[in-house]
Structure formats: structure tokens, C-alpha cells
Design a protein around this nucleic acid. Sequence first.
RNA 1: GGCGCGUUCGUCUAAUGGUUUAGGACGCUGGCCUCUCACGCCGGUAAUAGGGGUUCGACUCCCCUACGCGCUACCA
Length: 477
Amino acid sequence: MTEFHEEVRVRFAPSPTGHLHVGGARTALFNYLFAKSHNGKFLLRIEDTDKERSEEGFASEINQSLRWLGFNWDEEPIYQSERTEMYLSNAAQLISTNDAYHCFCEPSELDEKRKEAQRNKKQYKYDQKCRGIDKVEIENRLKDSDRFAIRFATPNEGISVVHDLVYGEVKFENNEIDDFIIVRSDGTPTYQLAVVTDDKHMAISHVIRGDDHLSNTPKQQLIFSALGVKPPLYAHLPLIMGPDGKRLSKRHGATSVAEFQNEGLLPEAFLNHLALLGWSPKDDTEFMNIDELIRRFKIEHVSKRSAIFDYKKLIWLNGKHLSSKSAEDLIPIVSAEWGLPADSQIDKIYLKKVLELVKERAKTRKELLNFGKYFFEDPDSYDDKGRNKYWNDTEVNSNVQKLLQDLEESDSFTEEKIEEVLRSTAETLGIKAAELIHPVRLALTGFSISPSLFEIMELLGKETSTRRLKFALERLP
RNA sequence: GGCGCGUUCGUCUAAUGGUUUAGGACGCUGGCCUCUCACGCCGGUAAUAGGGGUUCGACUCCCCUACGCGCUACCA
């Protein structure tokens, strides 16, 4: 047995057969939180032993998504496809200790047996036909270059116990566990062998992964002990489901992290929401940034229940994170749309003022862009609600006309001054201030909703404000 | 089919045998604030899957049933 692992070392081990999806991101997050909260290392391993389905493009997209989420790995990533020798040498070791054996059965033959068992409603299990073949015959068969796989010789009795950090003690009868294949007949290792070899090699202290692996854990523990190595500690995470309670998949809409990124979601909000899926800080705190998550995360507080991805709550959290960020920090997410003339301090100041006004009331980047666009261009249309409710007859035109005059005569154009002028105009006309405010909002923004009108007007300036009023007077009602 | 895991408001969750008329949040919804919207604040809606035990007492422990999910591949 090897030494006890003092240092916390965890790994996230995606297989590059698709995008990084929500479930994978959550697994990565919990690994990351666990590592950081224990001053440990967070490692990355690409499980690309399935040559058929693995694609290089996916590996780099996964890397990119992990970076976006801020999960920086502490050591060079390991690629399983480059480590075949090590797997095979472990397999050889297992054969030498009789913990594994050559299997010459044909896949088609096994398939047939499996189907027959199904037909008879019998439980299928490999019959261990090749387990007893003696050494001489094996040598001969190998010389005749028979194709073979390597199987693990699972004990036929006894029980395997997994002491899971989330699920507690879980027991499995060894005779329920098949003599599973560890090396395919094409000479490549399977998942079970590769995982154990790498977790050992990387000195992984805690394996934190989806609970679809809970049933695999006894197999892996068995390999570890056959190899004479103490297995890591395990923590399985409940799976994330779609709104219909089924495993999250494409038909549930956006499920890849890249899609959320493209949508303009804040990574902090995405992380915050993911953390709340299956984990709770045990009090009522819901809004947390990554540092607070690290500070409060405890693996024992992970739930055993699978959770359904709640898109609405994600959006709510995004809104909260959006308004809590400084205008400065928000510039990158809008600059692609609104532009940011190089080194122009004036424009940057303007942009920040705009963000300051709209960030409080936007939940998504889309809303941010939508509700902020009139700071950069004159409205080209007016929303229906505004037209019907606030500017439906020509009396509004004469009122606005009067306001326009008063504003043009005004010597300054500050928020306070504008309000003063508007209110006194309203008084002169004998109408409520609101009867001017709403039409003016519509004229200046094209919307019936917006931030405080007087702040908007100051920011737009006298020239733009009066231009838009004149323009509206021509076109409305 | 076998094995494993799970089941508290529509959703995320709290309450780890008594402090509970089961708490918070999202959503939906009534109101306040107000130049609109958002924020904020005050309310409302809504849950312990079913049945047996154990116990003075069960959301909490045990058993059964139902339902869901996972594994049962020369996928990971």
C-alpha cells in the first residue's frame, strides 16, 4: 500500500466526445471548489481513449470553456491517448498476479450469449470461459496470433464497500460484478483501467465525479487493490436533469457551456447557479461570487438528489451579478456591439455612465444592449404601448412643443435644471409632470420604460435631446 | 430483468427525533415606493410520494410499494 495522500489533488476528466456541458461544468466546479477550499491542486485530464468518438476540436473547446469559467488547472493536462504504454504495463502486472487474464472470446460470440440471456430473461454475466485457460495454451494461442482482450478477474465472492463522501457507505456484491474488459483486442485500454492508472499516477487524493460512476467505483477499487495501491477517496455528485426530469440533453435547449458564453451570460452567475444545484451553504445565502463559494463549500453538504436545471433562476442570478458589477467591468461585454474607440477617454466615460444607468435593470446582455442602444443612436421607432398610452393625440404635440421651447431657452442642461424646467412647463400648461415625462421618454428612447428620464437627458445632451423631440413631433401621434 | 441511488412547494433548497401553524429563494401574484421599468420593502400562492412499523413524539430511523435516475459495452 502506498502512503496516505496528504495533499488534496483532484482532477476533472472530460472525454472530448462533445462540448463541455452543464453537468460537466458542475462537476468541474465542485472539483475546483474542493481543491481551492483545501489549498489543493486542480488538475485536468482528457479521457480520449475512445478513438471512434473523440475529436480534437472538442478538447480545445472544453479547454476554452473551462478558462471562461475561471477554472485554471495547476499542472499540464494529461492526455490518455498518449499514455497507452503505462496502461498496458499495468495490465501486464495484473496478469502476472493473476488479477487479469487473456480472453479469446469473439465479440460476436459474446453478443449472442447476451441476447440469449435476454430472451430467457436471465441475467447475463460473462461466463469466465477464458479465466481457467492454462499458461501453455495461452502461449500457443498468442503465437498463433489469436486476437485477445484482457479481462479483470473479479473476485467471485465477498463484498466491495465504497465509502462515499456524499452517499455514505455503499455496498456491492462482488459476484454481481462482471469480469470486465480492461484492454480491448485492438490493444487500447478501457476506461476502468485508464482511470485507475492515471489516478494513481497523478496521485489523486479525491475523485469527485457524476454519480453515473458510482456503480463503477467498486471495479476501480478492486483494480487499485490488485495493483497494491490505496484507492483515492470518492465523492459522487447527483446528476443534473432537464425540466422534464430526464437527463439533460440537447432537446432541453442550451446545454453546452459555450452556448451560455455566447449568449453573453456572466460566468460568475453561471457558476453561482451551478453551485446551488446540489449544494447548499445551509443558510439562506444564494448570491455568491467564486471566492465566497470557495470559502463556504463543503463536500459533506452536497445533496444526494438530482436537480433540475432552472433557467429562470439562472437569469435572475445573472441580473444580480450584472448590477453588482462595476460599469468598468461591464465594458467588455458590450464593447463588441457599441464599440469603444481606441483610447478615447471621453467615449469611455460616456460608456460607463450609460452602463451605470442600465445595468441595474437588465438581467441579460441582450437586455443591456437593447435598453442601452438609444444612447448611441436615435430611435427609429416607438413602442406600441408608449404610442397608445402616452402619445395618442395632438394635444401631446402642443405640450411637448412648449417644453421644447422652454428647454431650448434654458441656459444649462443638467439633470436638476431639466427637471425644474419640465415641472414648471407642466405647471404653466396645467397638466401633471407625468403627462410630459412619458411622451418625452418615448421620443428620446423609443421605449415606454427606461431609467430616470432627467438623467438620460443630461447624458444625451441638449442637442440630441431636442433633435429627438423635434423628430418625434413630426412623426407622432 | 439484476444491482445501485434517490423521492420536502412547479423549480432550487432548509429543517440531521421534539425549538415547525415545515423556513428561504426563483417563478407566479396583490400592494407600497415612484416619471415608467428595474431595485427595494410588505403580503399571497404552493410541499414532506403511498402504506406499514420503531418511538411518548418522525420530514428526519427501519421495511414494503410506486415512481424517477444510473450501471449492467471490447463507451466514458
